[in-house]
């Protein structure tokens, strides 16, 4: 497998529990950034970065617009904006229409990242109840990146990863307990 320059994790219903289990096991000297796009309710003050930063030594922060992606940092997509990745490895935010009834939409981040990081991108789609992320994974594959899903059998809500498995040639299907090792070995 290619060297990983960026990992993006997308999830919806049932994905927070996975993150809470996996994140504490990620090694602190990770040499690529992790970006997390999770569907959730709107709210100016999101508790998600705080919740996750209590579980890891990695720096966890909500994304600021124009921020540069840096290794060893966990970025959380803000609620009610789409998070896009630019060719110069910065984030930009976008308040356009919802995609798959979602803002943030996992597709928007996967697709823009796919063009930027190409074969050095790994995208992981977790538990969820709609098909956001599926088209994104198609783009990731088209640009040579690696598509990974949570094993639908281990997902609280299997629909999202199952849709991905049905429509995209997935590279790795992981149960929750294998995810941390997988991520640590990407370095």
């Amino acid at each position: 497998m290619n060297k990983c320059d960026a990992l993006i994790i997308g999830g919806s219903a049932g994905s927070l529990d996975v993150l809470l289990k996996v994140l504490p096991l990620i090694k602190p000297d990770l040499n690529f950034p992790i970006t997390i796009v999770i569907h959730r309710k709107n709210g100016a003050d999101s508790l998600l970065p705080e919740l996750l930063s209590g579980r890891t030594k990695l720096l966890v922060k909500e994304i600021d617009e124009k921020e540069v992606l840096r290794p060893g940092t966990v970025y959380i997509a803000p609620s009610d904006y789409h998070t896009l990745i630019e060719q110069d490895h910065t984030f930009s935010l976008d308040y356009s229409e919802k995609i798959n009834y979602s803002r943030p939409a996992i597709d928007a981040t996967f697709q823009t990242a796919a063009e930027v990081y190409k074969e050095k991108l790994v995208c992981l789609l977790l538990s969820g109840s709609n098909s956001d992320g599926v088209n994104g994974l198609k783009s990731v594959k088209a640009w040579g990146g690696t598509a990974v899903i949570q094993d639908p059998q281990s997902a609280q809500v299997s629909y999202m990863p199952a849709q991905a498995a049905a429509q995209v040639k997935i590279d790795y299907i992981l149960p929750i307990e294998d995810m941390a090792d997988f991520i640590n070995l990407l370095s």
């Binding site: 896009l84 060719q87 976008d94």
Partner: peptide, 9 residues
Amino acid sequence: YSRASLKRR
């Protein structure tokens, strides 16, 4: 303009 959004549009 930021390109990622513009290009998507």
